[in-house]
Structures are given as structure tokens and as C-alpha cells.
Amino acid sequence: MAAIAGRPAGKASWQRGLRDARLWLLLITAVLMLVDGYLIFMVAPTDAVLGHVQRIFYVHVPISILSFLGFLICAVAGIGYLIRRTERWDRVAHASAEVGVVFVTLALVTGIIWARPVWNAWWQWEPRLTTTLILWFIYVAYLMIRQYAPTPQQGRTWSAVVGIIGFVDVPIVYYSVQWWQSIHPKQVIGPEAAEGALEPIMAQILVFSLVATLALFTYLLLERVALRGIEDRLSQLRREGNTD
């Protein structure tokens, strides 16, 4: 109790600073997203083969890439947690896994919607889609483990293990279109992308979308970390209240 009442003033102002930073980030994200929408719908050229529906590309690809980033952060923070065993690492790992699951779900959904007019099928059991679905399952399991573990302590350790092992699937997803025959197009950005896979203007708009989506990702991640922080403090208070 005394620790809470006598909270050092420095920490509170730091937290207020963080809250302001989140607000600013939200504002920047909103502006970026508006510009991005203008670029996608008004500036980006219509694809010669696929037509207007190809504009889904500018959300589908950045969202997929940022889901990978989420799982990378989750794995790194999981390693950090296993070494240091501090709440802070776990908070980051948990938040990034949840945001990553939201992003990979949206990547799957936008892909499904895009596939219907282009492939003439909503879903195909081909390597890219299958490995992505497995990725989704792995990190849903990550969140379930936390939920259902007998003690929070065990939930943290076990989910960290799952998050680290699960990350193995991320490079498999990326390289799947390279390794296996697939109906999914080959990589258009990253180390394995073919030369000239994208027209310069398309590549530029894609990069802009990536930046805008990164801002959104960062905002959601910070918001989630902050939420975890408050909820942790709340449950700690409740525990202390109950043991009084």
C-alpha cells in the first residue's frame, strides 16, 4: 500500500508523457492514413490485369509484413523475458502477439476477399495460405496459453516458449512462394523480390502505405502495452486488497 501511495513523481510524469506521445502518434497515424487512402484510390494506377481490385494490395501486403514484425517483437521479447524474467518484457511480448494476431487475421481476410475475384476461389490450400493459417493458429495458441495457464507466472513462461518456437513459421511463410509451387504471386518486396515486379509509382505508394500502417501498428502496440500496464496494477491492487 505504501508503495502505491508514495509513487515517485517522476514515474507519473513519465507516464503522462507516454500518454501524450500516444495521442500524437494517433494524430499522425490518422493523417498518414488519410493521405494513404488518397494515394491508393486517386493516385495509384489501375492494374492492367486485375483492375481496381488490385488496390487491396496496398493494405494486404503492409498488414502481412507488420504481422511478421509483431511476431518478431513477440519472439525477441519472449527471449528477453526468459532471460530477465521481468514483467516489462512479458508485457511487450503479450501486446505484440495480440496485435500481430489482429494483423495476420486481417491479412488472411483481405487475401480471401482479394482471391475471390482474381483466383476465382475464396480459399486455396496452397503453401502461402496454409502456412499463414498455421501462423495464425500458433499465435492464437499463444494467447490461449496465457488465458488458461494455472498461474500467470507459468502462462508467461510457456507463452514465451510458444512465441519463440512459433516464429520459425514466419520465414517459412515468406519463402513459401519461392520453395513450393503456388497460386500466390511471388514476393514483390524484400530480399527475394524479382526485379521490376512493381512499377515505381506502385512501389512508392506501397512504401508509403507501409509507413502509415507501421504508425498504426506502433500506436496499437503502445496502447496495448499501456492497457496491460494498468490492468496489471489494478489486479495487483486487488490482490493486496484481498490479503489485507
Binding site: 498455421i134 493458429f137 490461449m144 496459453i145 495457464a149 512459433g166
Partner: peptide
């Protein structure tokens, strides 16, 4: 865990 019936397959199969 509290949901062992579902958690094992979800972890195991991937």
C-alpha cells in the same frame, strides 16, 4: 491449464 482438451491439439498440430 483449464482447457487442456483444446489447448493440446491447437499447440500440437501446427
Amino acid at each position: 491449464t483449464r482447457s487442456r482438451e483444446i489447448l493440446l491439439p491447437v499447440l500440437f498440430f501446427p
